[in-house]
Design a protein around this nucleic acid. Structure first.
Length: 631
RNA sequence: CGGGGAGUGGCUCAGCCUGGUAGAGCACCUGGUUCGGGACCAGGGGGUCGGAGGUUCAAAUCCUCUCUCCCCGACCA
């Protein structure tokens, strides 16, 4: 029989089906079955015909729960380090997350689709072509021109803004996209948690002034809360390090989990929460020593006493009266590519630890510990007896670039009569007062917070947890407008730069965090809003006709009521189907077993394995009730 | 990039030390029995042992180089 070649008269395809059809199925709508039913194209999802490759055992190289289970449940398969394919179930869950993100973002912004392939020129223009180093994926086209794969899109949107925005009347703008991002991570890890290709919702705001940016920022803050609420995540919002770019304000949306890479400090007593890189605590005031002798720096013999503890014990003082001197170096390349090193000396209170992230943010460049020869050269003393006295420190970190930098932690500001090394083997100095006996380049908050220290707001003990970052909002300021030359005319006809914000959500991480938050030894369960299916209908034995027919019937009824249903019609033993159902993240299961003869089936809640008998006639009403409760 | 570990049917792994016919469980195919928490019996298919080179009569096994993956660190919007 010849196949019909002519297109049959179909329902007109809505444009939305074609919009945003891009790799990874991004933008593909997971459509409500009711519409398909009406159009007569509906096919019930039958497990037997689907590709859901579940595994009994976790892959040997998987470490964290989400990685193990997403592979075992047939959501993902690895192509190479940090690059994954999303299979049927994974993609379905993915698209549900994206649909939520899109729905909420559409309320505040406009969706774009920006290229993944970027020109070198825009990255040069922002200064990030060299700044990004190896993290930026680079490639060449056939003409040998340099290209990059999209890392984020500040450059691309600013390029558009630069060319197109002319007047304050066009502001504010919020532009967003949901597209793959590429980062050549030094170490991809933990399944989907840190990958080299991932999907990010990134948005960018342009406002005429800082007050406008505050509004755009707040809109994102609120929208992110709605998105994560709808995704069923337990999350917290923390103050984040605004980084070296000079941004003012930044918040991270964090989900507590052991698998996380970030450390967050929070208070159970109030709403204080901050990234470790930013967190502070209330210090109990330390008792200063009384001056000895004439109050001038006083050399004391401390033979063989090198560590803070040793010296404190030897001199019978508290480590709180000691200065810890940390000798660090930065290696930078100047314009000619020549390596230039600069000493960064950090003073901490004797019992405090340095937080490297805070230091990096302060000096805006990576540091390394000084080598022994470098220490000798600078201090004329072996390590263990280092101190700030007798060295000409830079007065300004940016201007005095030929002198070493002395950064002093704020906990030492205002303290008197401290003890530090004398830059002489076996000697320390007493009676040291910052600002009098030595002159810091700057005071800065460089101290690492410890669990149990007092909350800066309410004084109750702080806790420290590991967490996954699922979203980050950031007041960019003028960095890109300035470097790339974007400007508009304001009300007075004066040329001003638009002030920008940038905002990101990691789509994969929403899924990962949800799995990390909801799993047991048998598998995981997803919030129904992001689960690939809401209900799995499981006929215990497909060869028993009454059972099977009842199951098909129930699945069809639930579907036409608008539920997202999969029918496990496989001719497998019940144990196999139950195990798979528990594994793959579907929050509800309907067991169709012997009790069908009495008109009853079982509804199983995956999270608790709570079982409830429900009459078949009431099954739709039952779920409508449950979902109202779960809404 | 530094440190550690691993590459053997689709998956989990044994075999390697001490060189001599490539193994097990699961999965898969056929037939049968079973059917409420990963069944059983019988038969069957499938592996250049990551790759290259070397030593040897003979290499999964010993040696050299190399690629890939995982973990810790460094790094990370």
């Amino acid at each position: 029989m010849p196949q019909a070649v002519e297109p049959s008269p179909q329902k007109p395809v809505k444009a939305s089906w074609y919009n945003n059809q891009f790799p990874c199925g991004i933008g593909k709508r997971w459509y409500d079955s009711a519409r398909d039913l009406k159009s007569g194209t509906h096919n019930m999802h039958r497990w037997s015909a689907l590709f859901i490759p579940t595994l009994r055992e976790a892959p040997a190289d998987a470490e964290v729960a989400s990685h193990k289970f997403l592979v075992r449940a047939g959501y993902i398969r690895q192509l190479m380090a940090g690059v994954y394919s999303y299979l049927f179930l994974g993609n379905r869950s993915f698209n549900k997350i994206i649909a939520i993100v899109r729905q909420e973002m559409d309320k505040i912004g406009q969706e774009f689709f920006l290229p993944a392939l970027h020109s070198r020129e825009v990255w040069e223009a922002s200064g990030r072509w060299s700044l990004m180093g190896d993290n930026l994926f680079r490639l060449k086209d056939r003409k040998g021109a340099d290209l990059a794969l999209g890392f984020t899109a500040e450059e691309v949107v600013t390029e558009i803004a630069r060319k197109e925005l002319r007047s304050y009347k066009q502001l504010p703008q919020i532009w967003y996209q949901i597209t793959p991002k590429f980062r050549d991570e030094p170490r991809p890890k933990s399944g989907l948690l840190r990958v080299r290709q991932f999907t990010m919702k990134d948005s960018y705001s342009f406002d005429v002034d800082a007050a406008g940016l505050d509004v755009s920022y707040k809109k994102h803050y609120d929208t992110y809360c709605r998105i994560f609420d709808r995704c069923g995540l337990k999350y917290m919002v923390v103050e984040a390090d605004s980084g070296a770019m000079g941004g003012k304000e930044s918040h991270e949306f964090m989900v507590r989990t052991r698998a996380g890479e970030d450390q967050i400090v929070s208070c159970d007593g109030c709403d204080y929460a901050a990234n470790m890189e930013k967190a502070t605590s209330k210090l109990e005031p330390a008792q200063d020593l009384k001056p000895e002798g004439d109050g001038k720096p006083l050399e004391v013999h401390t033979p063989g006493q090198k560590t803070i503890e040793d010296v404190a014990k030897f001199l019978v003082v508290s480590p709180k009266n000691k200065i810890k001197t940390l000798a660090l170096m930065t290696d930078e390349k100047d314009a000619s590519g020549k390596k230039k090193s600069r000493a960064i000396i950090v003073l901490m209170r004797g019992d405090h630890q340095l937080n490297e992230a805070k230091l990096n943010a302060t000096v805006a460049v990576a540091t390394r510990p000084m080598e022994e020869t470098e220490i000798e050269a600078m201090f004329n003393s072996p390590a263990g007896y280092l101190g700030p006295v007798g060295i000409e420190w830079a007065k300004d970190i940016k201007k005095d670039i030929d002198r070493p930098v002395l950064l002093v932690d704020k906990a030492l500001e205002g303290r008197t009569n401290l003890i530090a090394g004398a830059n002489k083997k076996d000697y320390h100095l007493k009676n040291l007062t910052p600002g009098k006996d030595f002159h810091p380049t700057a005071y800065a908050d460089l101290r690492a917070v410890n669990a149990g220290e007092a909350c800066p707001n309410c004084g109750r003990p702080l806790r420290i947890d590991t967490a996954v970052e699922i979203g980050h909002i950031f007041k960019l300021g003028y960095r890109y407008s300035e470097t790339m030359g974007a400007h508009v005319l304001d009300k007075n006809g004066k040329e001003v730069m638009p002030i920008m914000g940038s905002y990101g959500i990691g789509i994969e991480r929403i899924l990962t965090a949800a799995v990390e938050q909801n799993n047991d030894e048998n598998g995981f369960w997803l919030p129904r809003s992001i689960a690939p299916f809401e209900i799995v209908v499981t006929p215990v034995n497909v060869k028993e006709e009454t059972m099977f027919k009842a199951a098909v019937d129930i699945a069809a009824k639930l579907e036409s009521a608008g539920f997202d249903v999969i029918l496990d019609d496989r001719d497998e033993r019940p144990g196999v189907k139950f195990k798979d159902a528990d594994l793959v993240g579907i929050p509800f299961r309907v067991n169709v077993g012997k009790k069908v003869t009495e008109g009853t089936v079982e509804v199983v809640l995956r999270s608790t394995h709570e079982v409830r008998d429900v009459t078949i006639t009431a099954i739709v009403e039952y779920f409508q009730g449950v979902l109202r409760a779960h809404a």
